[in-house]
Nucleic acid binder design. Structure first.
Length: 151
DNA sequence: GCCAACGTTGGC
DNA sequence: GCCAACGTTGGC
């Protein structure tokens, strides 16, 4: 089982949205590195650390689960979508996404500042300079350290 | 709102 | 295939 960190702008789609929806397609990712992770590495049952970015209090707000993999992102075919990709075809979809299932929202988030203060997390990809990949792998070691901070 | 760090595009 | 120009991300 793997751990991932998924970034989302709460104005776009917050953990509360996911809680209401129960499930959602992680569509609209238009970065090849992030796509490759979703396409090749994410497995059903993997744990997602749900991160709020581009907001006042950035941090990890809860957990989700990879519910289904290998789904062609429908927005690539939708001419009205800002994620429309004219080069994608149904036969050869370019953007593959996953379905995400809500697991829990933390009583209080683990803020970025708290992650930064934890010396054991200095190698966490999220905290590296210039790190802006929206889907990141999190090692089991790091994941356990992070989840331990909830207590 | 600024801007550093990335990623992508397209002319050559 | 190089790389300048442009676009985007996301912390601050």
């Amino acid at each position: 089982m793997n751990y991932w960190l998924f970034k989302s702008e709460p104005d776009e789609y917050s953990i509360d949205h996911l809680k209401t929806d129960k499930k959602c397609l992680w569509e609209g990712v238009r970065n090849y590195q992030a796509r490759n992770i979703m396409r090749d590495e994410c497995q059903k049952g993997d744990i997602i650390l749900y991160y709020h970015s581009s907001t006042k209090e950035t941090g990890i707000y809860g957990l989700a689960i990879i519910n289904q993999t290998g789904i062609a992102d429908p927005s690539q075919f939708d001419k009205n979508s800002k994620y429309y990709d004219p080069k994608a075809t149904k036969e050869e979809p370019r953007w593959i996404c996953v379905e995400v299932k809500y697991k829990k929202k933390f009583k209080s988030p683990i803020l970025r500042d708290e992650l930064k203060e934890n010396k054991k997390l200095k190698d966490l990809m999220l905290l590296q300079k210039g790190s802006r990949l929206s889907i990141q792998p999190v090692s089991e070691k790091h994941a356990k350290i992070i989840l331990e901070m909830l207590k």
